[in-house]
Design a protein around this nucleic acid. Structure first.
Length: 929
RNA sequence: GCCGAAGUGGCGGAACUGGCAGACGCGCACGACUCAAACUCGUGUUCCUUCGGGAGUGUGGGUUCGACUCCCACCUUCGGCACCA
């Protein structure tokens, strides 16, 4: 009889890790006799220390991969390092250590940490993105994109981080203050010649998630990020001398072509190329000053939270193609050169920004969409109406309110005609009255003028100014009306509705307006339906050393020439120096950039920028397939067998960066004939973030960092793994709780103790056996389900529950029986993915065949799992009043009868007869009295 | 402002398609073991209660025999976007 050992993870864990590795237990090879399963976890950056967040990401996904393996899949579960990047360079400057040295030392250390988790990584497939054999193929792929016009260089204003001394992609600029995603410094704008990937060519396809199972959260984030807007392009014509037809064409993008008739002015972005040409001599000084200031302001960053509208009139005019109106062209910084066409038609009546702008600068505002809520108002100041007006309104059923200035009238839509008639009759001779909201009328003593055009506005305005000196300063009717507080809610709206004041389109209802106008625009040749995306092309140039060199040579004769494939990789030089300025050492290197043109062999210069590291991480899942392959990105045989990735797990923070880039990379590769299939990753799941015990983000400066190495030293990896799976919902994460881990410590120790009890040839009662087997198979059913759906926390709680049950059975003499052995066997298999070392150790101690991790997942015995007796809840009026135990297959009538005859029920029924009895089979009986 | 997610005991969290709210664990209390402590084991632990019960899943309403779950309105917290035409 072997002596009972203490549970000692410090001893058994390294032992098994070594054993598994030597046996190549987790090596993944192509095996066409089995279904494949490619499980992938986002790779870490080699910062030098694996923190608890890494463990939270990696151990549950490891458990899931192990589960799939036991389910009979040929599982590949690789790991690697995203090794290029800024922290290595920062360390270089700070500690005077070469980034390469720093990075590779960190990788050595982190491999050890990763091994201590006991994960089933196939290390033979490891890929490190800073190895020349890796970045060779990043460069090769760059060339492919360049050949296919998916990589291009252009001069443009780009976001620049003054702290990191490099440009950033739009996705890497975060928050309201537009700060650098890495260091938090607010970015500035710089005009630079930079390399871009044409991600926008794939905008539409990237919106299609129909072939993949990704979380709604990510789908929503990406959809918003790509930001599709449906609308129309409309060509306006600049009305200036000396412009060719082509030059005079100003195209705008609008989501509201149904409001075209309300376009009362145009606004160009200050950087718009046409600004120079249309500005008149009189306005030129103001315009130049504004442009200059606007450009500088973006440089300083648009800091002011309350952005007051600003702008300048260019002196130029444009013709609105739908009605021939001649409208002024302004410039303003609220129009962005980077979205749409950099020019807008302003419809102040139905766009809030345009409304604010028009009011501020006295530009005309013409409502062209009817209100759908029917709100209609009129204000009759004292002295403008004859006595009896209020009473006359009252008799009509029009409510009005009187204040010290006059009558505030809200007119029901169907009483509008009656109102116009009445006010006409009661209006004083030298007064006027107006109706706003639904219907726009000005009533004078000699007749009614409908405000339905800019022309009628002028007529009305002239008359009002004549009658009332107080409004003589108003530039527009809207400005005049806006002065009246009572009107404000009726003056502006941006809803869809019936078109008004829109020529032959007046009366077109909101549900068809956009489409009908679009068709008409196209017929006329002045516009067409169009789609715009918020997504921008991906800026990949970085002014840094520690990255993949962009394989381009600039020749005075031939321009940007790609380095031929057979001359790749363009190697990073090792002998570099860091200046405290933080400037890229690649640029300062004495010889590296001097080379010859691949075409003419004349002297030429290398591109000294490197690629965004997101380029490396866009395809690492392909490099794992064959990390040493030297004929391409990957060995096609490996690709054909393993791809696509079946499950991809990682943090939500990559939703709009990495996860868009990698989809773009794949789709572009597919179109270039390199890859196949619509998507690189079929299923995606995100884990949450672990916070410090103070509920704050973990950081060294806060001192709330939980170090996994210490936990492993103290409790063992199995316990830490189990706790990480148990302590929170995986997709939510949450604050760490140090004392909670005691629960999993006890759990594993209890398993250890209970399962190493030597069997006493127990002879449990049939009932004990039956109950235990039922619980075993019910638990198996749940654990299987929860592994499938990534509900790791309930896997552990179900196993704890079963252990409690088995403990009781053990006390009742179950040990040593056949059922007990079955229970232990199934238990160990179920816990093996969670706690691989201790499961293997107990498995071995029980004399079972090596390894538990090569065993199959057990099958649920449905007969054993079935209940015979169930507890039927008896409710009276929905309140639980009794519980009765009945056979599971009890008949409906019998169950109801039993419930009604329950003595506990009687007193709640009083003397009432049951009005209704509801039976939910297997669950409850509800008696309604 | 727009888009999205989440609100359940002292805490983390359970509850499949509407059917016993609080599984499992932490913490706490009491007890056993111990000279004692730790470990371990056992019992209890949503709140109120006149011990009959009553209330209770962010708030207010609704649908239903029955609502954490469905519908409407609102509040709070978190995440994303933001002068995007």
């Amino acid at each position: 009889m072997p002596e009972k050992q203490e549970y000692n993870p410090g001893e058994i864990e390294p032992k098994w890790q070594k054993h598994w590795e030597e046996d190549g237990l987790y090596n993944a090879e192509i095996d066409k006799s089995k279904p494949k399963f490619y499980a992938l976890t986002m790779l870490p950056y080699p910062s030098g220390d694996l923190h608890i967040g890494h463990w939270y990401a990696m151990t549950p996904s490891d458990a899931r991969a192990r589960y799939m393996r036991m389910r009979g899949f040929n599982v590949m579960f690789p790991m690697g390092f995203d090794a290029f990047g800024l922290p290595a360079e920062n360390a270089a400057i700070k500690n005077n250590i070469h980034p390469k040295e720093w990075t590779y030392a960190n990788i050595v250390r982190m491999r050890e940490q990763l091994r201590s988790m006991g994960s089933m990584y196939d290390w033979r497939r490891e890929a490190v993105s800073s190895d020349p054999k890796y970045y060779h193929w990043s460069q090769w792929y760059f060339n492919k994109l360049f050949e296919n016009d998916l990589a291009y260089r252009k001069m443009s204003p780009v976001d620049w981080c003054p702290n990191c001394n490099t440009t950033l992609a739009r996705e890497q600029v975060w928050g309201e203050d537009r700060h650098c995603e890495r260091c938090g410094t607010p970015v500035i704008k710089k005009d630079l010649e930079q390399w871009f990937f044409r991600t926008t060519s794939y905008a539409e396809e990237l919106l299609d998630f129909s072939t993949i199972d990704w979380p709604d959260r990510v789908v929503t984030l990406q959809t918003n990020w790509i930001g599709r807007s449906d609308g129309a392009e409309v060509h306006f014509t600049a009305d200036s001398d000396g412009l060719s037809d082509d030059e005079a064409r100003i195209t705008v993008f609008t989501t509201r072509p149904d409001t075209l008739w309300g376009a009362t002015f145009m606004v160009l972005a200050p950087e718009h190329p046409l600004v120079e040409k249309i500005t008149t001599t009189e306005q030129s000084e103001l315009v130049h000053e504004y442009v200059h200031q606007a450009v500088r302001q973006t440089d300083i960053q648009r800091e002011s939270a309350e952005k007051e509208k600003s702008g300048v009139f260019t002196g130029g005019y444009a013709i609105n193609p739908v009605n021939g109106e001649r409208i002024p062209i302004w410039i303003a910084d609220y129009v962005l050169m980077t979205y749409g066409t950099g020019a807008i038609m302003a419809v102040p009546a139905h766009d809030e920004r345009d409304f604010e702008f028009a009011l501020k600068f006295g530009l005309p505002i013409l409502p062209v969409i009817d209100r759908s809520d029917g709100l209609t108002k009129s204000f009759a100041p004292i002295g403008t109406t004859k006595p009896g007006f209020a009473q006359a309104l009252n008799e009509l059923g029009i409510s009005s309110e009187e204040d010290e200035r006059g009558l505030l009238i809200t007119i029901p839509v169907d009483k509008l005609d009656a109102y116009l008639e009445t006010i006409s009759a009661y209006l004083q001779k030298d007064a006027w009255n107006e109706v706003v909201g639904t219907g726009w009328y000005f009533i004078f003593s000699d007749g009614i003028i409908e405000w339905d055009s800019q022309e009628s506005e002028q007529r009305i305005l002239v008359r009002c100014k004549k009658l009332e000196p107080q409004v003589a300063g108003a530039h527009t009717l809207m400005e005049m009306l806006w002065g009246e507080e009572f009107y404000r809610d009726a003056l502006y709206h941006h809803e869809y509705g019936t078109m008004i004041h829109s020529g032959e389109f007046s009366g077109t209802t909101g549900d068809v307006a956009v489409q009908q106008v679009n068709e008409w625009l196209e017929e006329l040749g002045v516009g067409k339906a169009a789609i715009n995306y918020r997504l921008r092309d991906w800026l990949i140039s970085r002014q840094r050393y520690w990255g993949t060199p962009i394989p381009i040579v600039y020749c005075p004769e031939h321009g940007a020439v790609r380095v031929p494939d057979d001359q790749l990789p363009v190697l990073l030089p090792d002998d570099v120096e860091w200046l405290p300025t933080g400037e890229s050492p690649l640029k300062l290197h004495p010889t590296w950039k001097h080379t010859t043109c691949p075409i003419c062999d004349e002297p030429a210069e290398r591109e000294t920028d490197t690629m965004d590291t997101f380029m490396c991480s866009s395809w690492y899942h392909l490099r794992y397939l064959s990390p040493d392959y030297d004929q391409g990105l990957f060995d096609p045989a490996e690709y054909d067998y393993w791809m696509p990735v079946d499950i991809y797990t990682g943090g939500i923070e990559h939703a709009t960066m990495h996860l868009i880039y990698t989809r773009f990379f794949h789709k572009a590769g597919r179109d270039m004939g390199i890859m196949q299939g619509p998507e690189p990753m079929s299923q995606l799941r995100n884990q949450g973030i672990i916070l410090g015990e103070d509920s704050e983000k973990m950081s060294k400066s806060r001192g709330n960092v939980i170090a996994p190495d210490e936990l492993v030293a103290r409790y063992g990896a199995d316990t830490v793994r189990a706790y990480l799976m148990f302590f929170a919902r995986w997709d939510l994460g949450g604050p760490w709780n140090s004392s909670g881990i005691e629960g999993t410590v006890r759990w594993i120790r209890r398993i250890w103790n209970l399962f190493s009890e030597v069997g006493q040839n127990g002879n449990p009662s049939a009932e004990t056996t039956r109950a235990m087997r039922r619980k075993v198979h019910q638990t198996l059913r749940q654990v299987t389900h929860d592994f499938e759906t990534f509900e790791f926390n309930t896997i552990i709680s179900a196993l704890m529950e079963l252990l409690n049950e088995m403990q009781k059975a053990h006390e009742n003499g179950a040990a040593g029986s056949e059922a007990w052995d079955e229970a232990v066997d199934i238990y160990l298999r179920m816990m093996a993915p969670v706690a691989p070392h201790v499961a293997e150790e107990i498995w071995m101690n029980l004399g079972k065949p090596y390894s538990i991790h090569s065993q199959s997942w057990p099958e649920v015995d449905e007969a054993a799992a079935a209940e015979e007796q169930i507890t039927l809840v008896v409710q009276v009026n929905g309140k639980v009043r009794d519980r009765i135990s009945v056979p599971v297959d009890i008949g409906e009538e019998e169950a109801k009868e039993l419930a009604l005859s329950s003595p506990a029920i009687a007193k709640y029924m009083a003397d009432n007869e049951p009005r209704k009895v509801i039976l939910v089979p297997g669950k409850l009986v509800n008696i309604v009295v």
